[in-house]
Amino acid sequence: MEQPVILKAEHITHRYEKNPIIEDICLHLNQGEIVGLLGVSGVGKTTLFHVLSGLLTPTKGRIFLAGEDITGKAGHISYMLQKDLLLPYATVLDNICMPRRMKGMKKKEARREAEALLEEFGLEGCQGKYPSQLSGGMRQRAALLRTYLFSGQVALLDEPFSALDAITKGEIHQWYLNVMENIRLSTIFITHDIDEAILLSDRIYMMSGKPGRITAELTINKPRPRGQEYMLTGEFLEYKKKILELLK
């Protein structure tokens, strides 16, 4: 059952002071799909995200959101940067409301909308706290809810779980997969953790080289959500083996 394409990038090349960072990248994201972007550090994954989000205008290439050309235009796609970047001086609720406020929504209305989603994201009871009072996992949840409130359509997540310890990471992977079952947010996420990529993704793009290109694509056929025990199956290891070979 193939879903319609929601985000499409065609032949993206970006140069920084004449040095190509990424070259001729084509990718697409289907509705409701979770796509992993896997590659070593410095291959240009974050640059690609900056381009997709509209923070950078690519030297060449076009980006389409639901058919509309959004090349170089910020404000259409949710982008969660590597750090959670919660503002220390605003409560969790006001942090989450921020994208709505940027779009000119009234404070009260934005709060009401955000409050309705707190439970879904496991953040009930945290709204009045400041980010410094939350654990790393809870901060990530808040950042993710903020990302979702920005655009319920497409989100780019740059290493969303890399700063967490292994145990918290395992928990939040399960939480994430469950939330995604309900909100169906089409997502591309960056990771350099192969296990994480297999566990969370429907499809994985692999980037390598200098300048960075997409060198391989792999579909994970196991339906989501996948429990942690999936990581112990032979099927999982087969995927892992394949990826390691493709990344060579």
Binding site: S53, L81, F150
Partner: peptide
């Protein structure tokens, strides 16, 4: 990076000033 996040959210210069 926080400024980038605000820009990605489509914030104006004034909004970045006011909220960040």
């Amino acid at each position: 990076d926080a400024a980038d996040l605000f820009k990605a959210m489509g914030a104006s210069k004034w909004q970045i000033f006011r909220y960040m």
